[in-house]
């Protein structure tokens, strides 16, 4: 009986650890994606400005896409559709957002890069997607993204598509945390 108990508790521990492992897969997946570019998500923390130098011998086309999701009434579009850059050059690109409704709305932009692996080489120094964006009724604003392409970008990539999907997150928005931010 004693032998049973020891073995049962070991097996239960395995089961419990695997339950935890299921949850651990979430951060593991994120790390894995950041290392390999698995899902084409760009890092949501600002990249360092530090660049080794501009590689003028290469030209990379960056395509900008913007899509308000179906429940999001904002008008949301990139200022220009595409731009050609040299790896290492820092650029600023503006997105236009307008809230045509009669309500205050908070938006969250979710970036996605294709091809996925290129996401590793598209560094954002500043981006409106790092935080939630607010627009009062009828207001509009310019939302900038400051970025550069890593000179280490593998040769097979010459076009990078950067898409933002804009979601209405007013329902889950918490004013307190925002006030704190304004106070900063």
């Amino acid at each position: 009986m004693q032998a049973h108990r020891a073995l049962v508790s070991k097996l239960l521990l395995v089961a419990l650890l695997m339950f935890g492992f299921g949850y651990a897969l979430v951060p593991l997946y994120e790390v894995f994606c950041e290392v390999t570019g698995l899902n084409g998500k760009t890092s949501n923390t600002p990249a360092a400005m530090l660049v080794d130098g501009v590689d003028t011998s290469r030209e990379i086309t960056i395509e900008f896409l913007a899509r308000p999701n179906k429940d999001m009434p904002w008008i949301f579009k990139p200022e220009i559709r595409r731009m050609t850059v040299h790896p290492g050059e820092v650029h600023v690109m503006n997105y236009l957002a307008e809230n045509p409704t009669s309500q205050f709305i908070v938006g969250q932009a979710v970036p996605s890069v294709s091809p996925g692996q290129a996401a590793l080489y598209l560094h954002k120094i500043e981006c409106f997607c790092f935080t939630q964006q607010q627009l009062a009724a009828g207001k509009n604003m310019l939302m900038p993204v400051q970025f550069y392409v890593d000179p280490a970008l593998p040769a097979q990539f010459n076009t990078i598509t950067l898409n933002y999907t804009l979601y209405d997150v007013t329902a889950s928005w918490q004013p307190e945390t925002q006030i704190e931010k304004i106070g900063e």
Binding site: L11, V14, A15, M18, F19, F21, G22
Partner: peptide, 14 residues
């Protein structure tokens, strides 16, 4: 079973 049924439990909980 012991390795993967808990993972199913995780994903349905999520």
């Amino acid at each position: 079973l012991i390795m993967v049924m808990p993972v199913l439990a995780t994903v349905v909980t999520m």
